[in-house]
Simulated scan of single mutants.
Amino acid sequence: MDEVLTAALRDAVFDRLDYLDRLAGESDQHSKAALADTEIVRLTYAFRALLAEHSSDERGRCKQCSGWLRSRRHPCSVWNIAHRHLLTGS
């Protein structure tokens, strides 16, 4: 059952992202402005929540990526991807 729920969650998220990509790419300027007014706040909130989950602990390790058997230095890949896409534009 977990696999079905995981697949449904993944598909729903990617479907939403595809929908937003289509709207941003195919809409007129007025519709794009309306889209920006509603969706940018939601996306930045989601991004901040994701980054908060991947913040560093007192040892400088990612709280989310580190576990009992492994520890990942901060910044982890989530922070590196955020930096790359939000700040360097690649």
Rank of each mutant, 00 (worst) to 15 (best):
L69Y: 03
R84K: 11
H54T: 10
L20M: 08
V13F: 05
T6W: 01
A7N: 00
A12Y: 00
G60L: 06
L51P: 01
A82P: 00
F14P: 00
A34C: 12
H54N: 15
D57M: 07
K32C: 12
V41F: 05
R48D: 10
L20D: 03
A34Y: 13
R16G: 04
L43I: 11
A36F: 15
S66I: 08
S90P: 00
R42Q: 12
L51I: 08
D11K: 03
V41I: 11
H54S: 12
A12D: 00
D57R: 06
R42P: 01
L43M: 10
I40T: 13
I81M: 11
D28P: 04
E3M: 05
P75S: 08
Q29Y: 13
A49F: 11
D2K: 09
S90A: 11
R16M: 07
L50W: 01
A82S: 05
L50M: 15
L23F: 07
C62F: 08
L51M: 10
F14G: 00
T38V: 12
D11C: 00
G67V: 02
R73P: 04
D37Q: 13
L51F: 06
A34K: 12
G25V: 12
E26A: 14
A49V: 09
F47H: 09
S56V: 10
V78R: 06
G89S: 02
V41G: 10
S66Q: 08
S56E: 15
C62S: 13
R10A: 08
H74A: 04
A36Q: 14
L17V: 13
Q64K: 12
D15N: 10
W79G: 05
R72T: 10
L35G: 09
A8T: 03
E58A: 12
S27P: 04
L69W: 07
A12W: 03
R22M: 13
L43F: 07
W79A: 05
H30G: 11
A8Q: 02
D11Y: 01
L69S: 01
A24M: 11
A34R: 14
G89L: 08
L69E: 08
N80I: 14
S90V: 10
C76K: 05
D37G: 13
K63Y: 07
K63W: 12
V78Q: 05
D18V: 11
S31D: 15
S71K: 09
T6G: 06
R59I: 07
L35N: 09
A46W: 02
D18F: 04
L9Q: 02
N80M: 15
R42H: 14
S55G: 14
F47Y: 11
L17Q: 03
R22I: 14
H85D: 09
H30I: 15
S90Y: 01
A82D: 02
G25F: 06
R22N: 11
D37R: 12
K32G: 05
I40P: 05
V4I: 04
F14L: 06
D11R: 02
T88N: 06
H30V: 14
S77L: 07
W79K: 04
C62I: 09
E53Y: 03
R61T: 13
R10I: 07
A8L: 04
D15L: 01
H74E: 03
C65K: 06
R70H: 10
D28V: 10
L43H: 06
A24Q: 05
A52G: 07
R48W: 10
S66N: 08
H30Q: 12
R84W: 09
S31K: 13
S55D: 15
L69T: 02
R84M: 09
A7L: 01
G89Q: 02
L86Q: 02
I40Q: 11
